Amino acid sequence: MVIQEFDVRFSDESCELLICMEALSPCDSFKKFDASKLLRLIEMYPDDFSTADRMTEYQLGNYIRNVKKDERFANLNNIADLIKVMVETRNHLSHPLVYRLLKLALVLPVTPATIQRDFSAIKLMKTNLRNQIGDDLLNACLICAIEKQALANHCYKC
């Protein structure tokens, strides 16, 4: 049942994306690290990575050798901890490709949630009464509903 639910909720591309992101996991001394999966992740985002980035497989090999030698990277449990240690040790400067992949892996789960929240706000705002108003007024109402925090901060300063 769990596998069926997983198949219903996630497309093949989403599953592949999750599998590729798993290759960045620092758990069990980077046991799941796989350069080919990371290269596939780079290919999935051609606008974010240059052709030169796609050809730097050696940087991935250097990265894994360096972090496995450094005891500061031992016993990390998640990608967020890994990126913190990378910045603290300044390894983000010597391995910029890996650092960008880590940032991508941290941002991707947030993006669908943000979009779903925005559509929920649209659904709440789009009632029968508001269906009869013009697009400009509806857009203004939606901006206020979606950007509540920014609007509250702005009103508070006034």
Rank of each mutant, 00 (worst) to 15 (best):
K32D: 13
K32N: 14
K32T: 10
K32I: 00
K32G: 00
K32M: 07
K32R: 14
F33M: 09
D34Q: 12
D34M: 01
A35C: 06
S36F: 12
K37Y: 08
K37G: 02
L38W: 11
L38V: 07
L38G: 08
L38M: 12
L39T: 04
L39Q: 15
R40N: 12
R40F: 01
L41R: 04
L41W: 04
I42M: 04
I42C: 07
E43G: 09
E43P: 00
E43F: 04
E43C: 08
M44G: 03
M44F: 06
M44Y: 02
Y45T: 01
Y45S: 05
Y45C: 03
Y45H: 15
P46T: 06
P46K: 06
D47E: 12
D48K: 12
D48H: 11
F49W: 05
F49T: 05
S50A: 06
S50R: 02
T51S: 15
T51G: 09
A52V: 09
A52F: 03
A52N: 12
D53K: 03
D53I: 03
R54V: 04
R54M: 14
T56K: 15
T56L: 11
T56Q: 15
E57W: 00
E57K: 15
E57V: 11
Y58M: 08
Y58N: 07
Q59H: 04
Q59E: 15
Q59Y: 01
Q59I: 06
Q59S: 15
L60G: 08
L60I: 08
N62K: 14
N62P: 00
Y63E: 08
Y63C: 13
I64R: 10
I64L: 13
I64Y: 12
I64T: 10
R65G: 07
R65L: 08
R65A: 14
R65C: 02
R65T: 13
N66M: 11
N66T: 15
N66H: 09
V67W: 09
V67K: 10
V67R: 11
K68C: 06
K68P: 01
K69M: 11
K69T: 09
K69L: 14
D70A: 08
D70K: 04
D70I: 02
E71F: 03
